[in-house]
């Protein structure tokens, strides 16, 4: 045979014999510096135990990922995705996410049932954070203990708020509502009233967590609401900040692992979810990403116990949201935010 034909057939067989498809898992997850944390804590151990390769996809916020799943009718191209309880509920209703069961994801049984209920059968709660009050230790005379400290005169013009496109904004409004005499869903007026007042004392709104972070790191603001996981990472990075869970309590961020209904590598995806929920994995995750867990039986450091959600008592301090109600209110609240809160900041 002519050399050109030999070369061509070799190339062709190489292409078709590629062994990648069967044993690869595509995981859509945290980006930026957090990629390294999830790699060390979860992905590398998983790859070693199962002898597979995990392809990492860092693109997209939770709602953006969900939009992608919906647009592709459940075949977005990734097998596992990190989203939140809100998308888990929505996805179940839309039939776009795989329903988990004790057979497919046995470790679900070890999770706090109340929290699992919030996420529903299509979401596996692998992480819990709460909304903390982050502040500059060098700029604030005494560490704040209450959410109302944000309204203090010496913090005027030294606070930044999330824009409504960041889910923190809605949660914060709910929290403020409870603190000021209303509730999480139906009596939300006190919440908006408080946010409007707070907006008038803030420097404005930003959407991305990374950009919000930069404001306190370079000292433009001295206090802000922020999720405790990233707050701890900021502290660890050496920034002159600290954070508290204020005395009135807080709201949680219930992060979940989800598997799209049309995932190509479903079996391996479910194995990955189960692996993430293992006791040892959760322990590594809590220590590595500085977050809380929905498993009550993990053994973690004192620092993690002190500052993260690791026990039932910790959960009791939180106001658990009705996410379906939030979803139906979201659009109207978004407009109300634009109408009342945003103009107050100018």
């Amino acid at each position: 045979m002519k050399p050109i034909y030999i070369a061509a057939s070799l190339l062709a067989s190489a292409a078709f014999a590629s062994p990648t498809m069967a044993r690869d898992l595509i995981v859509n997850s945290y980006g930026g510096p957090y990629e390294q944390i999830i790699r060390d804590a979860i992905i590398t151990p998983f790859e070693q135990e199962y002898g597979v390769r995990v392809i990492y996809d860092a693109v997209g916020s939770s709602s953006q990922d969900y939009a992608k799943i919906k647009a592709t009718n459940g075949r977005p191209g990734f097998d596992v995705v990190v989203m939140t309880a809100s998308q888990s509920l929505q996805g179940c209703e839309d039939g776009l996410l795989e329903r988990f069961s004790p057979d497919t994801v046995p470790n679900l049984a070890h999770l706090n049932p109340e929290i699992s209920a919030v996420a529903g059968p299509c979401g596996a709660v692998h992480e819990l954070q709460y909304l903390s009050l982050l502040y500059r230790t060098d700029m604030v005379s005494e560490s704040p203990q209450s959410w109302l400290d944000l309204f203090e005169d010496d913090l005027t013009g030294r606070v930044i708020l999330p824009s409504f496109g960041n889910v923190m904004a809605a949660y914060l409004t709910q929290l403020m509502s409870v603190i000021h005499g209303g509730d999480l869903d139906s009596d939300i007026d006190p919440g908006f009233e408080a946010m409007t007042r707070l907006a008038a004392q803030s420097v404005g709104f930003e959407q991305a967590s990374a950009i919000l972070e930069s404001y306190i790191v370079d000292g433009r603001v001295w206090a802000m609401p922020f999720w405790d996981g990233r707050a701890q990472l900021l502290v660890d990075s050496g920034a002159p900040v600290d954070y508290v869970l204020p005395e009135e309590g807080s709201v949680p961020l219930i992060a979940t692992l989800n598997v799209p209904i049309g995932a190509q590598n479903k079996e391996l995806a479910l194995a990955f979810v189960d692996f993430f929920l293992e006791k040892t994995s959760q322990e590594r995750w809590v220590e590595g990403y500085k977050v809380g867990s929905a498993r009550a039986d993990i053994e973690v450091s004192d620092q993690a116990q002190d500052r993260k959600i690791t026990s039932q008592a910790d959960l009791d301090a939180l106001y658990l949201p009705d996410l379906l109600s939030l979803a139906s209110n979201l659009s109207a609240w978004g407009e109300r935010w634009e109408r009342e809160v945003v103009p107050a900041a100018r």
Binding site: S61, S63, Q64, Y66, A67, K70, Q90, S163, F164, G165, G204, F205, E206, Q207, L330, S331, G334, E338, V342, P343, A345, R346
Partner: peptide
């Protein structure tokens, strides 16, 4: 434009990717 500056293009983005009201 900042938070309060909504034009059709940014509103469409929000509806597609945040509110998921296509």
């Amino acid at each position: 434009g900042g938070a309060g500056f909504k034009v059709l293009a940014t509103m469409i983005y929000e509806q597609v990717l945040f509110y998921i009201d296509w």
